[in-house]
Amino acid sequence: MSAVLAELMRQAEEDGASLPVLRAIAEEAGELSAARALERLGLGDRGAAKDMAELRELLAAWRDAKRSATRAAIGWVTRLAAALLLVGLAVKLGFWGWVR
């Protein structure tokens, strides 16, 4: 519980309100605020949980695809660098003279 809310509840209790009633009010206010926030975000309907699960799956698939693409690109760059190194060594060692 935040310090401000705790202080307000302490003051209300001093003025005669019971602590369990104040806690119930705070809990109800929190649930109402959360429901209102979800509604504003468009997540207040029954299908929202399914939509969020699908979005998480889609995001996980996107991350997997991005990771795979990065690994593939690194693999190609590594192979290209190795091929260039071999070509450089062949030229340096006079491979073209051996072919003729």
Score class of each variant (00 low, 15 high):
51 D>C: 14
24 A>K: 12
46 R>Y: 12
37 A>H: 08
28 E>R: 13
33 S>L: 15
69 A>H: 07
49 A>K: 12
23 R>F: 02
73 A>I: 02
52 M>S: 11
62 W>S: 14
40 R>E: 13
27 E>N: 11
50 K>A: 13
70 T>L: 14
55 L>C: 07
23 R>I: 12
63 R>Y: 02
76 W>K: 14
57 E>T: 04
42 G>I: 01
56 R>H: 06
36 R>E: 15
35 A>W: 07
31 E>D: 15
27 E>F: 10
23 R>M: 13
54 E>F: 05
30 G>M: 04
77 V>Y: 05
57 E>H: 06
40 R>H: 13
71 R>N: 08
35 A>F: 05
36 R>F: 11
60 A>M: 05
75 G>F: 01
55 L>P: 01
43 L>Q: 00
64 D>H: 05
25 I>Y: 10
58 L>F: 08
24 A>F: 06
22 L>A: 00
23 R>H: 10
51 D>H: 14
54 E>P: 01
44 G>Q: 02
39 E>W: 13
23 R>Q: 14
54 E>W: 05
66 K>D: 06
59 L>T: 12
52 M>Y: 02
28 E>T: 12
78 T>P: 00
58 L>Y: 05
37 A>T: 13
66 K>C: 06
25 I>K: 05
30 G>W: 03
61 A>H: 08
73 A>F: 06
38 L>K: 06
42 G>N: 03
70 T>N: 11
49 A>P: 02
75 G>A: 01
56 R>M: 03
78 T>E: 03
24 A>Q: 14
56 R>P: 00
52 M>L: 15
30 G>N: 07
32 L>Y: 10
60 A>V: 05
